[in-house]
Design a protein around this nucleic acid. Structure first.
Lengths: 343, 343
DNA sequence: AGGACAATTTAAAGCGCTTTAAGTCCTGGT
DNA sequence: ACCAGGACTTAAAGCGCTTTAAATTGTCCT
């Protein structure tokens, strides 16, 4: 609130105020000040008021490192993110609020091209995170399991073979299934799918497509095109479709980026979307919301995943849950403008 | 009974190894171990080897909070980012490497819709960051100046009125100037500009446009349309241009998002880009690189800014520089596919 | 052999906070 | 009066590491 700028370097001594300074000012012990500042019941109302006043005057702010060190607990959740991912950004946002509600704080660490997952996690541990929330880790399952020996690990967004650790993710197959259902309801039958490569997630989504098509008795229309997670892949696949004889009435892409590649290729070829061909993506990326795309897609529910991840951590830390748990959430369709009845 | 990894649980049976444990294992004092592990000269080669071996065996990892507390120095740079910004993501990536090279580490804190700048900065300070690197802060100049009283503040990407603190930014006016030059070279004269609202940055870019136009003797063609930083604004402005009598041959937008709105509107109206109208953005967003946009834009040089920000911090911390410094970098044009000779 | 000096090693004092056992000071009941 | 018991308050012992002064060892002269 009040930005009282205490002159730094006025007399060279520029120590930030310590607990002791507040205590001295009020004339009580540091113990009392600590108690008051943390809201622990005990100190009298009079002391409380005076301490709070003094702390405010001095602009006192607890030194986190000292607090962490002194208390066995740090109430810190380490979060590993890919700072380039918009989806992670959203997750972090919700993790912050979820953590705050249960009295935990977040420490962030990011992997980049030059900074691998290992380093990121070490940093988290070095700050004494009590649990690790890993967003879309790529490390092998046993590496993650080993990590779980040091602190509870919660993996978000990725399936782990036979998980000995907590996992929070959405049912990717189901999400793609929903898209197919949506398209079928609108009257589509020739629905092609552009694959996402060889990851766990891609496998699930592909299976979701196949299963849904069969469920609708459209086995004959199953058509999976090679691709990956990039826009370029979507474009390539779309061109392949355009070159072929039978253009499907709808195309489902592995993710939004790929779908956008499809849109670009179709638009360049003069094919109207959704007039001639319907297109759907996956992830509900920031991109997909842009009005120039307005892509029908599937949302992974960042907020829900964040909430579950935090409560998984809390259950591990505060409620001695020991058996691993996998939370699989249902993604939900986001209907926008790239799907219509087939021509 | 059989637990994966080591038995953990809240009873704290499985303490992570401490300096003392390593020392005991080798049969030396904790002091020696500390010295070895930090690479301080002193310990003999024999001790060094044995300590390193023991540390590795135990999987020892220093407890950062304790280290930070014990040493006056934390060698920690606090970085405030907007986790939703792709540009910030890039900056962070480069900040990491730059900091590492000079032996500093980063602690990240993000502002979100529910978490304001103030909170983010407090967190940074609570972890005893020695300097604060603020990416695109929105707080008023005097608030930032007050902050500088607690720790050196380095503002990245934004101009500060009469700065008492360090600033690293690019010359926004110059960047827009480069775009205008580029367009003029290609033969454009009727170049419109879509404004970015009322921020400091927007002001600079607008001025850059005006100045460049005058420099080329195109005063008569100066045309600034109302807008902001969103795609919607770009779309709106473009429609306004389309409705008017005289469509310019080129449009420069405040940023890439706005430019993409322009592209969308033009494409919808059947106007060919760059055949009929050239379009340019600003920021070199991830978006602008998408092949379906392939937008000609201006790059802010994230890496360079990051390097300067870190060295500004280091100069403050290790070389007691006290007088503020402003580093203004030259942005550079990124020529892609949305600019061509006027029809 | 004795001692000066360099090379190692270590004891011990914190860093700023939390936490707990041990006060201190009241109250009211007997 | 006197004491039990409640309401506060505080002294003091760490948390796991760094750091410095002092102690130890070894080396090399004279």
């Amino acid at each position: 609130m009040d930005e009282v700028g205490s002159a730094r370097g006025r007399n060279g001594t520029n120590r930030r105020p310590r607990l002791e300074d507040v205590a001295a000012r009020v004339g009580v012990s540091t113990a009392s000040v600590s108690l008051v500042l943390r809201g622990v019941p005990g100190p009298s109302e009079r002391t409380r008021q005076r301490v709070l006043a003094a702390a405010a005057e001095l602009g006192y702010q607890a030194d986190r490192t000292a607090s962490l060190l002194a208390s066995r607990r740090t109430r810190l959740l380490g979060v590993m993110v890919d700072i380039h991912s918009p989806f992670h950004a959203e997750l972090v946002e919700h993790l912050h609020t979820a953590a705050e509600q249960v009295g935990y704080d977040l420490v962030l660490s990011t992997q980049t091209r030059t900074r691998d997952e290992h380093t990121a996690v070490e940093t988290l541990l070095a700050f004494r995170s009590e649990a690790l929330i890993l967003l879309g880790p790529t490390a092998p399952a046993d590496t993650l399991a080993a990590l779980d020996g040091k602190a509870p690990v919660i993996v978000v967004g990725r399936r782990i073979a036979d998980a000995k650790l907590d996992v929070v993710r959405t049912a990717d197959d189901e999400g793609v299934g929903q898209i197919v259902d949506h398209l079928v309801e609108r009257g589509h039958r020739a629905i092609a799918y552009i694959d996402g490569g060889k990851g766990v997630i891609a496998t699930d989504r592909r299976r979701g497509y196949r299963t849904a098509m069969r469920r609708h008795g459209l086995d004959a229309h199953i058509r999976v095109l090679h691709g990956d997670h990039t826009e370029a892949a979507g474009e390539r696949a779309a061109r392949h479709l355009l070159d072929g004889a039978d253009l499907p009435t709808a195309v489902v892409a592995f993710n939004d980026q790929s779908a956008i590649g499809v849109l670009a290729a179709l638009s360049r070829a003069g094919v109207d979307v959704p007039g001639e061909v319907s297109v759907a993506g996956y992830d509900d990326d920031t991109l997909s919301r842009l009005s120039c795309f307005n892509l029908t897609t599937v949302s992974q529910g960042a907020e829900e995943q964040a909430r579950y991840a935090v409560s998984a951590a809390v259950e591990r830390l505060d409620q001695d849950r020991t058996e691993p748990r996998e939370v699989v959430l249902t993604p939900h369709l986001v209907v926008r403008g790239t799907v219509a009845e087939p021509a």
